[in-house]
Protein backbone atom coordinates (compact mmCIF):
# COMPACT_ATOMS: atom_id res chain seq x y z
CA UNK A 1 0.00 0.00 0.00
CA UNK A 2 3.02 2.31 0.20
CA UNK A 3 4.27 1.73 -3.34
CA UNK A 4 3.65 5.42 -4.07
CA UNK A 5 6.10 6.62 -1.41
CA UNK A 6 9.72 7.19 -2.39
CA UNK A 7 11.63 7.75 0.86
CA UNK A 8 15.33 8.63 0.90
CA UNK A 9 17.68 7.90 3.75
CA UNK A 10 18.09 11.62 4.39
CA UNK A 11 14.39 12.02 5.14
CA UNK A 12 13.15 13.31 1.79
CA UNK A 13 9.80 11.83 0.81
CA UNK A 14 8.17 12.02 -2.62
CA UNK A 15 4.62 10.84 -3.14
CA UNK A 16 4.49 9.64 -6.73
CA UNK A 17 0.70 9.77 -6.86
CA UNK A 18 0.20 13.33 -5.62
CA UNK A 19 3.54 14.96 -6.44
CA UNK A 20 3.81 16.24 -2.87
CA UNK A 21 7.17 16.28 -1.13
CA UNK A 22 7.99 16.14 2.58
CA UNK A 23 10.87 16.27 5.02
CA UNK A 24 11.08 13.81 7.90
CA UNK A 25 13.27 13.76 10.99
CA UNK A 26 15.60 10.79 11.35
CA UNK A 27 13.16 9.06 13.69
CA UNK A 28 10.25 9.83 11.40
CA UNK A 29 12.21 8.30 8.53
CA UNK A 30 12.87 5.19 10.59
CA UNK A 31 9.18 4.76 11.42
CA UNK A 32 7.91 5.36 7.90
CA UNK A 33 10.62 3.07 6.52
CA UNK A 34 9.36 0.36 8.89
CA UNK A 35 5.77 0.88 7.76
CA UNK A 36 6.80 0.69 4.11
CA UNK A 37 8.68 -2.53 4.88
CA UNK A 38 5.43 -3.96 6.18
CA UNK A 39 5.66 -3.40 9.92
CA UNK A 40 2.33 -3.23 11.72
CA UNK A 41 1.58 0.12 13.41
CA UNK A 42 1.34 -1.71 16.74
CA UNK A 43 4.93 -2.80 16.43
CA UNK A 44 6.36 0.68 15.89
CA UNK A 45 6.81 1.71 19.56
CA UNK A 46 8.98 -1.35 20.00
CA UNK A 47 11.09 -0.21 17.03
CA UNK A 48 11.79 3.05 18.86
CA UNK A 49 12.43 1.37 22.20
CA UNK A 50 14.88 -1.02 20.54
CA UNK A 51 16.68 1.75 18.74
CA UNK A 52 16.89 4.42 21.42
CA UNK A 53 17.00 4.61 25.18
CA UNK A 54 13.35 5.48 25.44
CA UNK A 55 10.56 4.49 27.77
CA UNK A 56 7.63 2.61 26.30
CA UNK A 57 5.08 5.25 27.19
CA UNK A 58 6.88 8.09 25.37
CA UNK A 59 7.49 5.80 22.40
CA UNK A 60 3.81 4.86 22.21
CA UNK A 61 2.67 8.47 22.48
CA UNK A 62 5.14 9.75 19.90
CA UNK A 63 4.21 6.96 17.49
CA UNK A 64 0.52 7.69 17.96
CA UNK A 65 1.03 11.38 17.17
CA UNK A 66 3.23 10.55 14.18
CA UNK A 67 0.63 8.17 12.75
CA UNK A 68 -2.07 10.78 13.23
CA UNK A 69 0.09 13.22 11.25
CA UNK A 70 0.55 10.67 8.46
CA UNK A 71 -3.20 10.23 8.42
CA UNK A 72 -3.83 14.01 8.32
CA UNK A 73 -1.45 14.23 5.38
CA UNK A 74 -3.30 11.32 3.71
CA UNK A 75 -0.13 9.28 3.53
CA UNK A 76 -1.76 6.35 5.29
CA UNK A 77 -5.37 5.34 4.93
CA UNK A 78 -7.61 7.00 7.46
CA UNK A 79 -8.93 3.66 8.67
CA UNK A 80 -5.52 2.56 9.92
CA UNK A 81 -6.19 2.24 13.62
CA UNK A 82 -3.77 4.24 15.74
CA UNK A 83 -1.85 2.30 18.35
CA UNK A 84 -3.09 2.79 21.82
CA UNK A 85 -0.87 4.64 24.25
CA UNK A 86 0.06 2.49 27.22
Amino acid sequence: MFDNLALSDNGFLFDTRTGSTYSLSSTGTLLLRSLIAGAAPDGLPAVLVDEFELDGRTAAQDVEQFLLRLRDLRLVASDTPPTEAV
Partner: peptide
Protein backbone atom coordinates in the same frame (compact mmCIF):
# COMPACT_ATOMS: atom_id res chain seq x y z
CA UNK B 1 20.97 0.36 20.17
CA UNK B 2 21.59 3.45 18.06
CA UNK B 3 24.24 6.00 18.89
CA UNK B 4 22.00 8.75 17.51
CA UNK B 5 20.14 10.80 20.13
CA UNK B 6 16.39 10.39 20.09
CA UNK B 7 14.48 13.15 18.31
CA UNK B 8 10.73 13.22 17.90
CA UNK B 9 9.36 11.58 14.77
CA UNK B 10 8.32 14.53 12.62
CA UNK B 11 7.04 14.96 9.09
CA UNK B 12 6.64 18.35 7.41
CA UNK B 13 5.04 18.89 4.04
CA UNK B 14 6.74 21.32 1.64
CA UNK B 15 4.06 23.86 0.87
Amino acid sequence: MSHMPYVKPTIIQHI
